[in-house]
Design a protein around this nucleic acid. Structure first.
Length: 206
DNA sequence: AGCACGATTAACT
DNA sequence: GTTAATCGTGCTC
């Protein structure tokens, strides 16, 4: 069986909230040497514009946020809490700062390596958080700015499983404490919830 | 130069 | 529910 097709830049150029929703059910792929690690994306969040007080670009264009102002379909990877890396995909048109945070995946390929990197954690906790999936897939600042649409890219997204609107839930974005309203409570978190599936089992355990 | 805080996680009471 | 770990970033002095 050939692998599904890699998403092109046209996918990422659209409204960040739509891209975040459409990423659910897609497959995140990490290429390491000749290995493929992958998982189905089950949780995302949208961050868009300098007016969004939860978005890093609220402070404008800096060395850190520069990539978010660049062309869509690139990786925005940042370091936080003194120890954790976060993976985002740049969205919308060049010059408008926006990105989708990948918060959780359901792991499918490379399980042995993922388990080893997750240091004895139970399977439902391997990739059920934004920093956890970066640890599991060996994603850090070295990959910041990477083009997700380039041939043989070390990170990319491909077609996964079809998702119905009924299986998607919206919620406020996670981890915002000092962010003013309406940004703190706006429902820009997207989760895949399919009763009776392993996707649900993972999120219930998180 | 110093400071407060962060799009988190794991371990603990 | 609470808290330590640990350091880059942006802001103030």
């Amino acid at each position: 069986m050939p692998h599904a097709s890699q998403l092109t830049r046209e996918f990422y150029v659209r409204d960040t909230r739509l891209v975040a929703r459409q990423l659910l059910g897609m497959r995140l792929v990490r290429r390491e040497n000749d290995l493929r690690l992958s998982g189905i994306i089950v949780e995302t969040e949208a961050y868009r514009g300098e007016e969004d007080q939860a978005c890093h670009a609220r402070v404008g264009r800096t060395a850190r946020t520069q990539v978010m102002y660049g062309p869509p379909g690139h990786a925005y990877i940042y370091f936080t809490y003194g120890m954790h890396w976060m993976l985002n995909f740049v969205t919308e048109g060049e010059g408008y700062p926006a990105a989708v945070l990948i918060r959780a995946i359901y792991p499918e390929e490379g399980l042995d390596l993922i388990q080893a990197r997750r240091n004895g954690q139970p399977r439902p906790r391997w990739t059920d958080g934004p920093a956890k999936l970066c640890q599991a897939l060996n994603i850090d600042g070295r990959l910041h700015g990477l083009d997700l649409c380039a041939p043989h890219s070390e990170i990319f997204v491909e077609e996964g499983v079809p998702i119905s609107d009924a299986s998607v839930t919206n919620a406020p974005r996670v981890g915002l404490y000092t962010v003013p309203e309406p940004w703190k409570s706006i429902h820009w978190n997207f989760q895949l919830k399919v009763k009776g599936t392993l996707f649900e089992e993972q999120k219930v355990s998180s």
